[in-house]
């Protein structure tokens, strides 16, 4: 992995404010256009941003998980089952989803995180498939391959979020909370510990950082965020099935993370904002959309190794070099 971990993506305070202003403008787009569909895309961007944010926390300790969709699925099913079977409110289902996903991550994290690099990628891939297959074996819980339809909409304090713009506001707040959490981790003592483990686990261990505990903590936080995302996703879309959480969903989160910037704070958000609406721009060319998507992916990897979030820095460096 790249070594420039500690360098913040936004060099100057001015750049930072500009970035925040840009994000706020982007977030307001659906209100300008007034289109329900744009609100829907906004919701999808928020959900993708949250899930990818969770994946980023795991990436900060140097691990790339292909089981992220399974944790989104654990959260989704936890919440759906609590709400539909036990008639608990969504406000119980949401935190429960995060707790259950985090707990599962804690339990399997210890043996799992001994593996590194490609091996970790592969085992998490196998785990994601295992999750899907096992869920299919228990139709009583998962609805089997027909899934569970008619999941109740999000309800907060007796108010049902029926319209897309209402859900959008809620997901924006959730996304802001996740990003704030990421920012706190990043700029706190924990962030420095994460970075040290990412850069060189052996060195980190010898300088007194408990590598295993640090990685486990990152894995639990990341997976808990995924679980919460799953809960919101299930209640918004209204349908869950084990197939929804197949490894292709994990792959799409990984693609967003890497495109946005694997180690940058804003990477997951930038990746989600860029890639979630992208197919919509390409839909005009139904046949070619996946090809164009693939080409863009390879081009970003090739020419922006720091991801899109590293773009300003890269431009700044180019300018310096020219001088």
């Amino acid at each position: 992995m790249s070594t420039s971990v500690s360098a913040p993506p936004m060099a100057s305070a001015f750049g930072g404010w500009l970035f925040v202003a840009l994000l706020a403008t982007l977030a307001a787009v659906p209100w300008f256009t007034g289109s329900v569909f744009h609100f829907h895309i906004g919701i999808m961007v928020c959900l993708a941003g949250m899930a990818t944010g969770g994946l980023a926390v795991i990436a900060w300790v140097g691990q790339l998980s292909l089981a992220h969709a399974a944790f989104v699925g654990i959260g989704a099913y936890t919440s759906v089952l609590l709400v539909t079977r036990l008639d608990l409110p969504f406000l119980v289902g949401l935190p429960a989803a995060a707790v259950v996903a985090g707990a599962v991550a804690y339990i399997i994290g210890a043996p799992l995180l001994r593996l590194r690099g490609v091996y970790f990628v592969l085992i998490t891939f196998a785990l994601n498939e295992l999750f899907r297959l096992v869920m299919l074996e228990f139709p009583g819980i998962s609805g089997g391959s027909s899934g569970i339809a008619g999941v109740p909409k999000i309800q907060l304090f007796g108010i049902t979020l029926a319209a897309q713009w209402q859900v959008y506001i809620f997901t924006l707040i959730c996304l802001a909370v996740v990003m704030a959490l990421l920012w706190l981790i990043r700029n706190g003592q924990l962030g420095r510990r994460f970075a040290a483990v990412e850069e060189n686990p052996a060195l980190a261990e010898s300088s007194g950082i408990p590598t295993a505990r640090t990685q486990s903590l990152a894995f639990v936080i990341g997976c808990a965020i995924a679980g919460a995302t799953g809960s919101i996703m299930a209640h918004y879309v209204g349908f869950v099935s084990p197939e929804t959480f197949a490894f292709q969903l994990s792959v799409s989160y990984v693609i967003m993370l890497v495109t946005g910037g694997r180690l940058a704070l804003w990477g997951p958000l930038v990746g989600a904002v860029f890639l979630t609406p992208l197919p919509e721009f390409l839909r005009g060319a139904v046949e070619y959309q996946h090809i164009i998507y693939g080409v863009i992916l390879i081009a970003v990897l090739r020419f922006l190794p720091q991801g899109l979030a590293g773009l300003p820095e890269q431009i700044a460096r180019l300018r310096r070099d020219q001088r």
């Binding site: 289109s35 329900v36 569909f37 744009h38 829907h40 895309i41 999808m44 897309q164 919509e280 839909r283």
Partner: peptide
């Protein structure tokens, strides 16, 4: 997503 687009957009 596609249904949202077809119906609302």
């Amino acid at each position: 997503t596609a249904a949202n687009r077809l119906v609302f957009e």
